[in-house]
Design a binder for these strands. Sequence first.
DNA 1: TCTAAACATGAGTTAGAGCTCATGTTAATA
DNA 2: TATTAACATGAGCTCTAACTCATGTTTAGA
Lengths: 216, 216
Amino acid sequence: MAESASQPPKMRRKPRQARSRERVNRILDAAEQLLIEGGYTAATTNAIAARAQVPIGTLYQFFPDKAAILYTLAERYGELLREHLLTSATGRDLPISLPDYVEELVDAIECFYTEHPGYLAIFAQAQGALPELERMEEALDTQLIEDWTREHARWDANLTESDCHAIAFVLVKTIGMLMWLSLEQETEFRQRLVSETKRFTLSYLQTYFSRNSENL
Amino acid sequence: MAESASQPPKMRRKPRQARSRERVNRILDAAEQLLIEGGYTAATTNAIAARAQVPIGTLYQFFPDKAAILYTLAERYGELLREHLLTSATGRDLPISLPDYVEELVDAIECFYTEHPGYLAIFAQAQGALPELERMEEALDTQLIEDWTREHARWDANLTESDCHAIAFVLVKTIGMLMWLSLEQETEFRQRLVSETKRFTLSYLQTYFSRNSENL
DNA sequence: TCTAAACATGAGTTAGAGCTCATGTTAATA
DNA sequence: TATTAACATGAGCTCTAACTCATGTTTAGA
């Protein structure tokens, strides 16, 4: 019982040959597309298989059930998002100004959502139907919140960890949601939303990290 | 073709007798509870009927289909929320200070969610499964946003309508979401979230409605 | 080349959710 | 009291999504 006991079920069998690896990818892509287009109810296993140009039997060769497809998708994206944020806004060595930080952070998130529209579709559709997926989303947000909590603690040693956590929580949730909503808006209002997000993020952060501290 | 053509389907027949009216209410309550407990998938028509202690046939005497039950629930709550907000924070005659306004507004929303946990369950579960319901949620938010847009326009005539709308949009969405998330938190962190919500709402509003204007 | 494991296939099974309907009962009203 | 409309009931129909499995094909490696 050394590893992996109560994890969400993943794959029934890992594809070893090149052809089957490609098919598994096609299945995941098809699932993502259908999720985006028609939501959870439209993403039936038969529809996924059809879209992936794969017989239904093949799908079940690799995935034990429908949920496993979504779990795999969610995992794939979760790692991607964390990487994306770590390599752009957060975790840099040299401190920058608060306005610059907010600018980069919001842009990074907006950029990720734009490039990966499937990310939100997965979690949005999972509400209630797949409790396991909800836990994965929770876990992902929790990781991000922890990342940011550490970041904030580095900025101002006077803030308690509880403070930093609350700030990170609010930011992760609000920025994430507003950038999500912006996706389905007209171009003009969408840009407005991005700038509003920056505005309130900055004003909120400034109430904690006042301009006293020089290196911000 | 004088009235009601393309509306979402409501009731197949309005209950005329006291007993059946009570049964319809029991059906709605049961649906709400199941939605809260187990999400959309758990809220099957058979389960709703069973929970309401009503045979499945009775349910279909009054509701043409499952969706109609959710529509009715959503409508019931939508009106309730608007009333709640109009009678508390918004639309008052005498102007109050910005901090006081934020205080009352956030408290009012938090209070509503606490007293009506079903409100959010309905819309959260509907994602993707019921496009009609999504439109209803959109419409409700749009109404709230319009209410607030007018409110903001009254405060500062220098702001364009587009400004007021963007502000209202951000506030409706962020406050709503944070108060929703707060529901499932431990008491301590929950209260923290409420105060953080007030903090960032106030700081955001102050960037637009600066303390120059005396009557705020 | 031969064998075993990996992979492919899609008609068919299963289960359960949405919904109907034929028949019976209760309440309103003339 | 008679008549009719409103209401009650639950076995069972229908439809469809998830998933299986028996049989055939391809690939990897000895």
